[in-house]
Design a protein around this nucleic acid. Sequence first.
DNA 1: ATCGCTAATATGTCTGCACATAATCGACCC
DNA 2: GGGTCGATTATGTGCAGACATATTAGCGAT
Lengths: 226, 226
Amino acid sequence: MIGWEDVRAEVIRRVRDRDWPPGATIPAETALAAEFGCARATVNRALRDLAEAGLLERRRRAGTRVALNPVRRATLAVPLTRAEIEGRGQRYGYALISDGIEPPPLRVASALGLPASGALRHVVAMHFADGVALVHEDRWLNPAALEAEPSFERISANEWLVAHVPFTTGEIAFSAAAADAAQAAALGLSPGAPLFVAERTTWIGAVPITFVRLSHAPGYRLCTRL
Amino acid sequence: MIGWEDVRAEVIRRVRDRDWPPGATIPAETALAAEFGCARATVNRALRDLAEAGLLERRRRAGTRVALNPVRRATLAVPLTRAEIEGRGQRYGYALISDGIEPPPLRVASALGLPASGALRHVVAMHFADGVALVHEDRWLNPAALEAEPSFERISANEWLVAHVPFTTGEIAFSAAAADAAQAAALGLSPGAPLFVAERTTWIGAVPITFVRLSHAPGYRLCTRL
DNA sequence: ATCGCTAATATGTCTGCACATAATCGACCC
DNA sequence: GGGTCGATTATGTGCAGACATATTAGCGAT
């Protein structure tokens, strides 16, 4: 029996071996189904999968073409800091630095799409692995969007959020930045040390929930498979 | 007509509204198909999509459960540096710094799974946006895996590779690092400046092709949607 | 109690068919 | 030549049925 994974493998082979060069239109689903001796739905499943992976481009009526610039999509799993540390077999530690209501800086307000005149909850905390400071967390929360007003003394805001606010949408941006004085002190580094920064904006539907900036100590690596 | 996207939307709603709390087993496909008045295949499509997205976990016989830790998968498109710069409406520039055959450092050899005793092609180059140095590229190529021996005087190795070596697999790792003396000079920064580093290892099947380290000047952001 | 086998069951996938939808091609008119 | 509009066509999605496969619950023997 020909399965859709067999079809996918054969299509990949033909693209890689240049039987179907970049930019070329490949035979229609019906033709491939006849050739492989399977149903069109099976071919469709395989081609759809490859289109999602970025190898093919599909358009109704126009057919299926081999992607000219195979922009590879890497799927990176964004874990909880805690799960990430414990997954490496290290002891997780957490400490709250500050927690209060403040007007957000313009950059945060615009990222959340909220007026800078409002007041948001501002939480600063640290994450440790085996007692070593690893991540500096600077988070702004929209109190209007949260049912409760939880304490973040013991558990991190991220952990509370994933447990209480499922299925959010959002954006992540990664960059590098020099440690400022406060971060350097908290992380036990000298100011100017290069930090790996992940900034995450989270909505539930159209309601902004939180903006967080996670600054990782040198040595941190975010890995993914193509 | 109930479509699979309608089913998906309703499942998302039930998870978000806690009708189905995290960890709970949701009704079987047949039950949902009966409830929604559609075919099981339609429900299957919706649930499979959500499982791929990380919201659900599915196992044969055991059923479908709401993911306890909804590890969000972000798909990030990894573009050509050139396409990225031109996509912002800036003028792209490229300059080769050095090109030669050398034995690779241990770190590169092990990333590629090649013996450190062999010799690889080592290419160092720069990428510019509107004349401003933006990216420092440090690349090692496996000559045994390449059909030709192209010149990288005018076009970058990346560009030659995507045009001549389709459908590779690989890994990417992101991190932050301080600029060393050579990088600082090439990028017009002071040594120690925080660089956003993307390291990419590429195979074709099991044959290692290239290892590249792209160091981005401060200000660079890698963005993605959740 | 524990191990091992069997039967039950939910998901995974394929088939063959149908209709929907979008985009292109080409005929037609000016 | 150039623009409009319908016919064509490849993909997108739906349905009902069937079988495959993994996994678990439960039963029975030791």
